[in-house]
Amino acid sequence: MLTKFMVHNDYVPQSKDDHEGRFITVAGNVGAGKSTFTRILGQSLQFNTSFEKVIGNPYLEDFYRDQKRWSFHLQLYFLSQRFQDQKRIGQEKSHHIQDRSIYEDVEIFAKSLYENRKMSQRDFDTYSELFYCMMTPYLIKPDLMIFLNGSIDTVLNRIDKRGRAMEKQVPKSYWMDLHRRYEQWISEYKESPVLVVNIDEADLLARPDQVDLIKKEIQNILNVKNNYQ
């Protein structure tokens, strides 16, 4: 099955005027294809797009060499970039699709580093306080999350295929741990409806018909979502 639609029982719809625009965020493990989905669906839907900053990231290469030393710095950088994105999207009030959600930074990556003893208790507490106490009240919630999910083999093959040297230094166990965390996290996620896309079957570059299919599903979900309010 290419897609599956999910709404958590505890999801609370948000009231939104038509002129505010619709906000979609694309989530998934490293290598899942978030940037490709964001770019292609952004063009198809005629939504503005924003992408995770990898090139020019001042901490990423250091982090992959020494996760324990650089984890806090990297996570703060990503959190800052994502929050700036959120602020800009909210101010523009236009239709927008975003590569990676701010929730992943907190619930997947920072928590994984802390629980695997690559971020200290002190740093994790500071990071969590910054997000939950200072940022959360100002976040705009997505109208829809697209979650890219599939087998860990597909993720590992895509990481290997794109050939980033710094990612190849990371042990397979790290990606497998993230994969498990993503599946647990999405089952508990309740900030918005979720459209799960099976990356074992999806290939938007080679299958334009899949782009049209997913586009129609998104449009239907966003239209129906108005009835939740």
Score class of each variant (00 low, 15 high):
N57R: 04
P58T: 02
P58W: 00
P58V: 02
Y59R: 04
Y59K: 04
Y59G: 05
L60S: 05
L60E: 00
L60Q: 02
L60K: 05
E61Y: 05
E61L: 08
D62R: 15
F63L: 12
Y64V: 04
D66Y: 04
D66R: 03
K68Q: 11
K68V: 00
R69I: 08
R69C: 10
W70E: 00
S71I: 03
S71D: 12
S71N: 14
H73M: 08
Q75F: 03
Q75Y: 09
Q75K: 05
L76D: 04
L76M: 15
L76P: 01
L76Q: 13
Y77K: 07
F78C: 01
F78L: 15
L79G: 03
L79I: 05
S80L: 08
S80R: 05
S80V: 07
S80Y: 14
Q81L: 08
Q81M: 11
Q81C: 11
Q81D: 15
F83W: 06
F83E: 01
F83R: 05
Q84Y: 12
D85F: 04
Q86F: 14
Q86A: 05
K87Y: 14
R88E: 15
R88K: 13
G90I: 09
Q91R: 11
E92T: 07
E92I: 06
E92G: 00
E92P: 00
K93H: 15
S94G: 04
Q98P: 00
R100L: 06
R100M: 12
R100Q: 06
I102Q: 05
E104A: 13
E104Q: 11
D105F: 06
D105L: 09
V106W: 08
V106G: 08
V106L: 05
E107M: 09
I108H: 11
F109A: 09
F109R: 05
K111D: 15
K111R: 12
S112H: 13
S112L: 10
L113V: 09
Y114S: 03
Y114E: 00
Y114H: 15
E115G: 02
E115N: 14
E115F: 05
R117T: 06
R117M: 07
K118E: 14
K118Q: 15
K118N: 14
K118Y: 07
K118T: 07
K118C: 10
M119R: 07
S120P: 11
Q121C: 06
R122E: 13
D123N: 06
F124H: 12
D125I: 06
D125K: 11
T126E: 10
Y127P: 02
S128W: 03
E129F: 06
E129Q: 14
E129L: 09
F131V: 04
F131C: 07
F131G: 06
Y132F: 15
Y132Q: 06
M135W: 01
T136Y: 09
P137W: 02
Y138Q: 13
D143T: 05
D143N: 14
D143K: 04
D143V: 04
L144Y: 02
L144D: 08
M145S: 09
M145E: 07
I146Y: 09
